[in-house]
Simulated assay, not measured.
Amino acid sequence: MHGIGTSLKWAVLAIALVGVAGCETRYRNHGYVPSEEVLQQIVPGVDTRATVEDVVGVPNASGVLNDSGFYYIQSEVKHFAWQRPTVTEREIVAITFDQAGVVDNIVTYGLEDGRVVPLTKRVTQTSDGDISFIRKLFGNIGGINLGDMLGG
Rank of each mutant, 00 (worst) to 15 (best):
M1K: 10
H2I: 12
H2V: 11
S7D: 05
L8S: 06
L8N: 01
A11Y: 07
V12H: 01
L13W: 07
L13K: 09
A14I: 13
A16R: 03
A16Y: 04
L17V: 14
G19L: 14
G19R: 03
V20H: 02
C23R: 09
E24C: 10
T25Q: 12
Y27I: 14
R28F: 12
N29F: 08
H30T: 10
H30W: 09
G31P: 03
V33M: 03
V33S: 04
S35P: 08
E36P: 02
E37N: 13
V38T: 15
L39P: 00
L39V: 00
Q40A: 15
Q41L: 12
I42P: 02
I42W: 01
I42K: 01
V43W: 07
V43D: 05
G45C: 06
D47T: 03
T48R: 12
T48F: 09
T48L: 07
R49E: 13
A50W: 03
T51C: 01
E53S: 11
E53F: 04
D54W: 05
V55Q: 11
G57R: 07
P59M: 05
A61I: 03
A61W: 05
G63C: 08
G63S: 09
V64G: 15
V64K: 14
V64P: 00
V64C: 03
L65I: 14
N66Y: 07
D67F: 04
D67A: 11
G69T: 06
F70L: 01
Y71E: 04
Y71R: 12
I73F: 00
I73L: 13
E76M: 12
K78L: 14
K78I: 04
A81D: 04
A81V: 10
W82V: 14
W82F: 15
R84H: 10
P85Y: 10
P85W: 08
P85M: 10
V87N: 08
V87H: 06
T88W: 00
T88H: 00
E91T: 15
I92N: 07
V93P: 05
V93D: 03
A94Q: 12
I95L: 09
I95S: 05
I95V: 15
I95R: 06
T96Y: 04
D98A: 07
D98G: 10
D98S: 09
Q99N: 15
Q99H: 11
Q99C: 00
D104C: 02
D104E: 15
N105F: 02
N105C: 09
V107G: 01
T108D: 03
G110A: 03
G110M: 01
L111H: 11
L111K: 04
E112G: 00
D113R: 13
G114M: 07
V117T: 11
T120V: 08
K121S: 15
K121I: 05
R122K: 13
S127I: 03
S127R: 13
D128A: 13
G129P: 08
D130S: 08
I131C: 00
I131M: 11
S132P: 00
R135S: 12
R135C: 06
K136F: 10
L137M: 15
F138T: 02
F138C: 01
G139N: 15
N140W: 03
I141P: 01
I141V: 13
G142F: 05
I144R: 11
I144V: 14
I144H: 03
I144Y: 06
I144W: 04
N145A: 08
N145P: 02
N145R: 14
L146S: 08
D148H: 09
M149A: 12
M149N: 04
M149D: 08
G151W: 10
G152W: 11
